[in-house]
Amino acid sequence: MLKYVRDLGKTGVESIQSIGRAGMLFGQSVTWGGPGSAGFLDLIKQIHSVGVRSLSIIIVAGFFVGMVLALQGYNILIKFGSVSALGTMVSLTLLRELGPVLAALLFAGRAGSALTAEIGLMKATEQLSAMEMMGVDPLKRVITPRLWAGMISVPILALLFSTVGIWGGAFVAVDMLGLYDGAYWSNMANTVEFYDDVVQGLIKAAVFGVVVTWIAVYQGYDAAPTSEGIGKATTQTVVISSLAILGLDFILTAVMLGGV
């Protein structure tokens, strides 16, 4: 009995310590190492590896999500005789919710896990300690460019997801189901507000970008330097960031809509 209480306490202390370490890591690595630091070239390389390489999955996923939204929406709305609201429905769903959330979830699976494994392996093969020995700060040299690359990439990916999805919806609604394309586009343009819908979606995506990359680099940096530890950290990255995205999504939506 006492053992369970002790275990509970241990878990509690450990998770609080871990949050503290994650906070320290973020604080120390979010700033650049001063002008002329080697990070900038690396930033471009990292945007390439986390952002550009995630493009294919984001675009394919976005297209299919948009298509299925249009198909489902058409079959629901036709019962109420208001299929002309289909464009509005597809675009608002994508811009406000699915674009940021799904792009961030896919990013966590595609790029977050890779980041964790990469940093974890650097730690296991003692590359990070070697850098320290050479007087190079591994936080600034390794973590900073990766953190920023993720924070820059996720909003762009979310935006592309929504864009492709809206055009995918138009493809199904207009070309396959024969909806009048003026109804699809003009009702959308009348209802969607740039600041309320597009910008709020971008804010959401930016928050998710920070959180997902932060979790990924922290899990890698904090992983036990064994092959088992890296595997565990990679799983943890995907699990924790997915839950964090979904939880934060509700909080952000509640704050933005102001209803709760």
Binding site: I166, F194, V198
Partner: peptide, 12 residues
């Protein structure tokens, strides 16, 4: 994508 969103989708 942002420009498309602004002009085509939200009708700015």
């Amino acid at each position: 994508a942002l420009v498309l969103m602004a002009l085509r989708v939200s009708g700015l």
